[in-house]
Design a binder for these strands. Structure first.
Length: 553
RNA sequence: GCCGGAGUAGCUCAGGUGGUUAGAGCGUCGGAAUCAUAAUCCGCAGGUCGGGGGUUCAAGUCCCUCCUCCGGUACCA
């Protein structure tokens, strides 16, 4: 297999999707689509790569949703796990596995991880006062306590902060505390929890992050901010029913904290993947060999867990590789304000897929990906990009080429004659294009990769215009054949280069060409692979126009 | 409050370590072409870079300050 830097294989993760709601475009833009593009590129380029994702299914939020709706947590996670899995599939996400944290694989992996640290004596126990609802028979998480803010007197402050004055609070400070669920008054009760010694990993983490020269400034600076404040030890157990039981005697009613076990989901899903492939030990290559490049894709809200907490866990365990990069994206907002499941202001993947071509959605998001700052998604933008770029530039080039070939060359790849300068220019540019685009992908610059790919199509349209095959066909059939031959070669190139962002269109173009995948690799994208005389399939329209009426809601 | 990020053309966004007339795509307007889903190609126009102050021969870029938005703030995930 090909090496990337000093690495022999690449392990890519996207942040697990929390299974208490339908996945929306914010998730796609933040952590799923960039990872999928990255992985698709790497596969085409011949690297050994696996792509891991799944549902995150435990924790307070799902348990509370279940209580509110009067159903079991299992009902919730089943509903959203399968719905989201399907939504991702329909949008062309190419996970090697999309599993879930409620599996036996994950329970075992999480408990083993916990026990590994426990047996090393790294986990300490501390007792703290917490609010307990006797009516519900449970401890209340901070944000499920409501009361009067001791600072400004706001009566609807939650246990973690006051929405009115912005102060950080602890639930014990609230006056007149009450349960958000039942409204009853909680009592103070003591509870003992296990703590992960995060503070003692500060120096190692700092050294590790400072050694990373290619990380986004946002990620590095954010971490440095935490080091400046000073890391504190963190509780890794919770008083909750819905979770993975603490695997140590005498801890009934306690589960492992979600942010301790969820990232282990990357590991347990990898275990499950290779179990399913019949090579049950192979997962260790990806997680425990130094020559693995581990890359976590995620949104900016998850930086703390992927760049500080999880790496510290892995350091403490000792057997695992650490992330080579944590390319966090900012957020994609919806028409000017942020997407939110709870406020119903979001575009769910399942909904948008019923109206639009998945590749058009992927393109609209990828071309406006929040790599450096929050961006906005507009349906007008999706429409414009579909009609004016995908349809007019890419779709039209492929179509005009195929239709022309069908009309004048019986749908067969024409013979190529001697190249003129204009021919050599465009075919010769393919090497630098593919190298440049590859470099963009490898450096997590997905917008640049995409716009550069489109630039090649613009060049192709210009080539078609400048060579005027509609005139050439009347003057010299041979010259015209050369032009159309080149245009068809370019279509084959597009099938490859657009695969990371437009996988369905890529397949369609390939099907129209009818050669199968014999030359379907990044290296071949700069070569003229089609043989003259090859019979093409009938052309089909790649992108239909989106009318104004279709984006009105 | 504190930590981090962001504010650039009508719209959506690029602009390491300060350096010639601030860029791209889309949109607008003008022109060319007619193979193609009226889809393409060429050209013009369009910005006192959130406000104010400072450093410098030179600031979108560095410093100070203010405003606005986003994330985090350790028991939501």
């Amino acid at each position: 297999m090909k090496k990337i830097g000093n690495y022999n294989r690449i392990l890519v993760t996207s942040a697990l999707t929390y299974a208490n709601g339908h996945t929306h475009l914010g998730h796609i833009a933040g952590s799923i689509l960039p990872a999928d593009m990255y992985v698709r590129y790497l596969r085409l380029a011949g690297y050994d790569v696996i792509y891991i994702c799944g549902s995150d299914e435990y924790g307070t939020a799902i348990e509370m949703s279940a209580i509110k709706e009067g159903i079991t947590p299992e009902t919730i996670i089943d509903k959203y796990h399968f719905a989201n899995k399907k939504a991702y599939e329909d949008l062309g996400m190419s996970f090697d596995i999309y599993s879930r944290t409620s599996t036996e694989y994950h329970r075992k992996a999480s408990q083993d991880f916990f026990l590994n640290l426990y047996n090393k004596g790294l986990l300490s126990q501390r007792t703290e006062k917490q609010l307990y609802s006797e009516k519900e028979g449970r401890f209340l998480a901070d944000r499920f306590v409501i009361g009067t803010c001791p600072i400004c007197g706001f009566e609807e402050a939650t246990g973690d902060e006051c929405e009115n004055c912005g102060s950080s609070l602890s639930p014990l400070e609230l006056k007149k505390p009450r349960s958000k669920i039942t409204g009853d008054t909680p009592v103070v009760k003591e509870s003992t929890h296990y703590y992960f010694p995060l503070a003692s990993y500060q120096d190692k983490l700092k050294e590790w992050i400072e050694s990373k020269t290619d990380w986004k400034p946002n990620v590095v600076n954010y971490c440095k901010g935490w080091f400046k404040t000073g890391l504190k030890d963190r509780a890794i157990t919770r008083d909750l029913d819905w979770g993975i039981p603490v695997p140590v005697e005498g801890n009934d009613g306690k589960v492992i904290y979600v942010w301790f076990e969820a990232p282990i989901g990357y590991i347990s899903n990898t275990i499950e993947l290779f179990e399913g492939r019949g090579t049950p030990d192979k997962w260790k290559d990806y997680w425990q060999k130094e020559d693995t490049k581990l890359v976590h894709f995620l949104g900016k809200d998850n930086i703390i867990f992927h760049a500080i907490f999880f790496p510290a866990m892995l350091m403490a365990h000792g057997d695992y590789v650490l992330a080579d990069n944590v390319p966090a994206n900012e957020f994609m907002n919806l028409e000017g304000s942020k997407q939110s499941k709870s406020k119903g202001h979001a575009i769910y993947v399942k909904d948008v897929l019923t109206k639009f071509n998945p590749d058009s959605i992927r393109y609209a998001i990828a071309s406006n990906m929040p790599e450096n700052k929050d961006t906005d998604f507009y349906f007008e933008d999706l429409q414009a990009k579909n009609n004016n770029e995908l349809g007019a530039i890419l779709g039209n080039f492929v179509n005009r080429t195929f239709v022309f070939c069908e009309k004048y060359f019986e749908g067969k790849v024409p013979e190529s004659g001697k190249f003129e300068e204009i021919d050599s220019n465009i075919t010769g540019s393919l090497i630098s294009y593919t190298q440049r685009i590859a470099s963009y992908y490898e450096n997590y610059k997905f917008k640049d990769a995409l716009s550069e790919t489109m630039n090649l199509v613009r060049d192709a349209n210009k080539y078609f215009n400048d060579t005027e095959p509609w005139k050439a066909v009347k003057e010299s059939k041979e010259r015209c054949g050369t032009i159309i031959n080149i245009c068809l070669q370019l279509c084959h190139t597009f099938a490859i280069l657009f695969n990371p962002v437009l996988p369905f269109t890529s397949e369609k173009i390939l099907k129209m060409i009818g050669t199968g995948k014999e030359n379907f690799s990044w290296d071949r994208a700069s070569e003229l692979c089609l043989k003259s005389g090859h019979v093409l399939n009938k052309p089909e329209i790649l992108f239909t126009k989106i009318e104004d009426s279709e984006i009105e809601f």
